[in-house]
Simulated assay, not measured.
Amino acid sequence: MKYLLLLLSIFVMNLGYAGSSSIVEVAGYSCMGSDFSRKETERMALQDAKRRAVERSKTHIESVTEMEDFVLKRDWVEAYASAEVKVLAILSSIWDEPGNGDCFNIVLQAEVVPSEQVVKSIKELNEDDPRLPLSIKVWSSADKLKAGEMLKIYLQGNKSFFGRIIYTDAAGDLVQLLPNAHRPDDYFQGGVRYDVPSALDRFVLRVKEPFGRESVTVYASTSRLGNIDTQQLGAIFKVNTAPSSVATRSRARFTEEPQKIKNPGESRLNEFAETTVTVLTEP
């Protein structure tokens, strides 16, 4: 997609899988003693922080997510018990003063990604339930589009969220559809269907070359997303941030607004969801 009003895009009633996760800022700690080297101690502190990130996510599911269905709640806890932990950023790392012992402290931002298989089976039955972790549905009226055809995109979250919609054309160029110049708000109400474009947007989505496989990704969080580099292109925004960095930058809000976390018992968490749908466009 090269120009604003002649925008190509995509979606299928067959919804793309919505990946849910939690992003945690958490501290880890380990002491060297007589059995471990400094390198091993640093590794164990990192593992301690990862373990605490998983435990914090499980606690969030158990306490913040209000579920009366015990089986459903158990399934979510199980999904996080087998979660993958991705380190997004190391915010600080320091050894204690010599007089305080040979101990290493680390604070990291990690994404805790629950078992995809378990989560997918849960959402198939309960995807609109606001008591569940954040989930976003994205769809359209067609799964294949030809030159000149018009498209409208729809999205809906199971709870309120902050978000952005990124469109990637067949040439790999990115634009931000929402927020845009005429609809700058990045806050979306839960349970409400949003149309893109709407009358507020003042543009249309019309298929134009380059043709091929296109994608639209919605990044959503219960906290504001991290910033990406954009410049206005009519009603929408051209994305200047490298495509490989958009997902990471969108998850980076805590890094941009650091909180002084020093003790292993401290942490902060927000729910995150990323949904991508693709389509083939033709002349």
Rank of each mutant, 00 (worst) to 15 (best):
V85S: 06
N100P: 00
I166G: 13
S57V: 10
K238P: 01
H60E: 07
R183F: 08
I236V: 14
F70T: 15
S250C: 11
N263Q: 12
Y167F: 03
V26Q: 05
K86R: 15
P114W: 06
D201I: 03
N240F: 13
T276V: 10
I90F: 07
F203Y: 15
L125T: 04
D201E: 06
T276L: 02
K146E: 05
G226D: 02
L8R: 03
Y3I: 04
I10K: 02
R56M: 13
T222H: 12
S30W: 09
G19V: 07
V112E: 09
I23K: 12
T59E: 10
L72N: 09
I90S: 11
E66S: 12
F104C: 04
I23A: 11
R52D: 14
S135R: 04
E84G: 08
E84H: 11
D128M: 13
T230E: 13
V113F: 13
M1A: 00
N270A: 06
R251P: 04
R131E: 14
A147K: 14
V196I: 15
N263L: 14
R52F: 13
I136T: 07
I61S: 10
F161E: 02
A181M: 06
G265S: 15
P179M: 09
K2A: 07
Q232K: 15
K238R: 15
S267W: 12
F11M: 09
Y219P: 00
E257L: 08
G163C: 08
A18W: 04
P133W: 08
F36M: 11
A53K: 11
A170C: 05
E25M: 14
I122T: 05
K208S: 08
F272R: 14
I94K: 12
L269R: 06
G226H: 06
K120S: 12
L205W: 03
S221T: 02
F254H: 10
K73C: 05
S221R: 04
I61M: 14
N158C: 09
I122F: 05
W95K: 03
D185S: 11
G265Y: 06
T248Y: 09
P133G: 14
F203C: 11
S9H: 07
F211V: 00
V54K: 15
S135N: 12
S30V: 00
L174T: 02
W76Y: 15
D143G: 04
L15K: 15
N158T: 03
F211S: 00
A110M: 08
I153V: 14
M1W: 00
L134C: 12
A170G: 00
R213Q: 00
E116H: 06
F203L: 11
R183N: 08
V24T: 06
G99W: 11
I122S: 08
N14V: 13
L177G: 04
L91M: 14
N263E: 11
K260G: 05
P98H: 13
S93Y: 03
L132W: 14
V279K: 03
S140M: 07
T168W: 00
